[in-house]
Design a protein around this nucleic acid. Structure first.
Lengths: 138, 138
DNA sequence: CACAAAACCTACAAAAATTATAGAGTATAT
DNA sequence: ATATACTCTATAATTTTTGTAGGTTTTGTG
């Protein structure tokens, strides 16, 4: 399951995507809309900004806005950013690789091989689906 | 990522699958093989037994053994048993459904629709892959 | 039958991760 | 100059995961 952080990130991205033409949007507007703690959402939006999805403006009239096209934001990137690895095991993670402690030889580990396969198939889906797909279903 | 519980469950199933002809196998044998705490593994094997994957025998000469064919144990069932939902959101979980608090109307939620789609695709993989596939790669 | 072996069961403790909050700092429009 | 609203770091609270303790029950064996 996605963490709340990631779920909230998606809600924020969706809201910003739907209201693109309005320019900068307040954290507060989004947090009230979805009943998310203002401060918690603040951290999330900041991460999304640092990752290059959002832009922001300080001071009066400020707020956040999308700086990427919705079709350039695959689910996989958002999930990796907020939740970490998509792979089911650390030893098959492309972005957060770590060997499994209990595994003597990764080369001959059947679990490793099958999970690498699952990862590839999962990534196909999560890289194909983008914010655009979500917006089209709203 | 899978929890350690689920990962250990897979290791145990693999070990029992590989050593099928030996009959009942001690918890201790598995826990030592993979460096898993005996007591922690005990709980896991018990769950696998209650779910109908394993049989057991008490007393001297006792232990655990596989009672299902490896091809009858899809990854999805093991993951659901130990880790819970496979879906990325509670509102699209088939086995652990819960509405999302922040979502007014699930019927018109684009996130819901896309995540239901992701769930279907993910399930196709996790239901197709079985313990048998892992054993074949060992 | 007595005993030892090994699974069964419940509850709890420790550790880690997630979720949430606090408060001071910085940039900007008016 | 001031109010507004994002930025940043640290920390607190909560929940989940991981691990431990200790007794109970079943079963094979001498």
């Amino acid at each position: 399951m996605l963490s709340k952080k990631t779920k909230y990130a998606f809600h924020a991205l969706i809201y910003l995507g739907k209201n693109k033409e309005q320019g900068a949007i307040l954290i507060q507007e989004i947090s009230e809309k979805y009943g998310i703690s203002h401060k918690f959402l603040e951290n999330i939006l900041l991460e999304l900004k640092k990752a290059g999805f959002l832009g922001s403006k300080k001071g009066k009239g400020g707020g956040y806005y999308l700086i990427k096209e919705p079709q350039e934001i695959p689910l996989s990137r958002v999930i990796r950013l907020l939740d970490g690895p998509i792979a089911l095991l650390p030893c098959v993670s492309l972005n957060y690789y770590e060997p499994c402690e209990e595994c003597e030889n990764q080369e001959t580990c059947g679990l490793n091989k099958v999970m690498a396969n699952v990862r590839d198939e999962t990534l196909k889906i999560l890289e194909m689906k983008t914010l655009q797909d979500i917006l089209e279903n709203e």
